Simulated assay, not measured.
Amino acid sequence: MQRWRRLDEVPDGYGPTVVTIGSFDGVHRGHAEVLARIVGRARGTGARAVAVTFDPHPAQVHRPDEAPPLICGTEQRLDLLARHGVDAVLLLEYTLGFARQTPEEFVVSCLVEGLHATTVVVGRDVRFGRDNAGDLDAMVALGEVHGFDVDVVDDVGETQGARWSSTVVRELLLEGDVAGAAAVLGRSHTLRGEVVHGDARGRELGFPTANLSQDAEGLVPADGVYAGWLRRPDLLTTRPDTPDGVLPAAISIGTNPTFDGVQRRVEAYVLDRTDLDLYGETVVLELVEHLRPTVRFDGLDPLIVQMDADVARARAILLGR
């Protein structure tokens, strides 16, 4: 998949294209339907499928104090878009200046002159251009003027009565319901970051953990203990058949209240392994199921008993034993 961060990076004469536009935070199942539509249309007409998205998220520019936390980081989003088979992603810098374009200026510069779009795939609630003045009717009218078709995708699904959306995923994660979020995402929610040194308390207790850096990508869900998987992308690239590439883990999120901690941390104990050295390695944590909330224990003995129980539940969930 080709990745461009400016319109002038698009090769001259690139196209024709089938294009969709969106923030694609989380790249959930609703997004997947739209992406499948552009890929299908492109393959059927000999065109190329292109997703246009933005960095930072528009809400972070227009309402920085009210902007919701993002489900995934930029690199995670690009990787997820690539999984859906698009030929290219145009990641445009979103600024107040960019937002001042009229709907027609955006369409002409980006979709017509930049990408030579023959079809634009959008939802009925599409908004674009200055003050979100462009809507579906405006897109259809501009297509008639500038020579592209508009393919409308209706809402494509719901889970437990809630429409597939980034907002729903965000709410579920902030409640700790990673299984519910996975039902909307179509996959487990992930966190990606470098393993850094922590306080080594886990090792002292017999449960050495891989601590993610504070700048890890991905929305950190509610404090608690989770069952999940620790993936090692670099190792899987160099040694795809290694049994150590994907490992079962019990994942703790919180401030370690038993030790009067203050900083929220994400740390993963790989089940039944004390021999791993992951420092400096970038890992991906897949959160499968919430086990329990974070609680404060009165001493180490009850904490260790609970950690043993957490590991046993994670083992049963992940490995069936």
Rank of each mutant, 00 (worst) to 15 (best):
Val10Pro: 01
Arg292Thr: 07
Arg29Thr: 14
Tyr279Phe: 10
Leu136Cys: 05
Ala117Glu: 10
Pro243Ser: 03
Asp155Leu: 13
Tyr14Cys: 04
Val262Gln: 14
Val266Gln: 01
Asp131Tyr: 06
Phe207Asp: 13
Asp131Ala: 15
Gly299Lys: 05
Ala314Cys: 06
Ala162Ser: 14
Arg273Tyr: 07
Arg315Leu: 10
Val262Tyr: 01
Gly218Leu: 03
Val10Gln: 00
Gly202His: 10
Leu319Trp: 04
Leu111Gly: 08
Thr282Gly: 01
Gly13Arg: 00
Leu212Asn: 05
Val156Ile: 14
Ala99Asp: 13
Ser213Pro: 06
Gln76Arg: 00
Glu267Trp: 09
Arg201Gln: 15
Asp260Trp: 06
Pro69Leu: 00
Gly161Arg: 13
Ser252Gln: 08
Gly157Gln: 01
Gly228Phe: 04
Arg321Leu: 04
Val122Leu: 08
Ala36Ser: 14
Leu70Gln: 12
Ile304Ala: 13
Pro11Phe: 09
Asp149Glu: 15
Leu219Ser: 01
Ala67Val: 09
Ser252Pro: 01
Thr17Met: 11
Gly299Phe: 07
Glu158Ile: 06
Leu247Ala: 00
Gly224Asn: 04
Gly13Glu: 01
Leu230Gly: 10
Leu35Asn: 00
His57Cys: 11
Gly15Arg: 05
Val220Asp: 03
Val52Gln: 07
Cys72Ile: 14
Arg187Phe: 01
Asp87Lys: 02
His28Pro: 12
Gly85Tyr: 05
Leu276Asn: 11
Cys72Gly: 12
Trp229Leu: 04
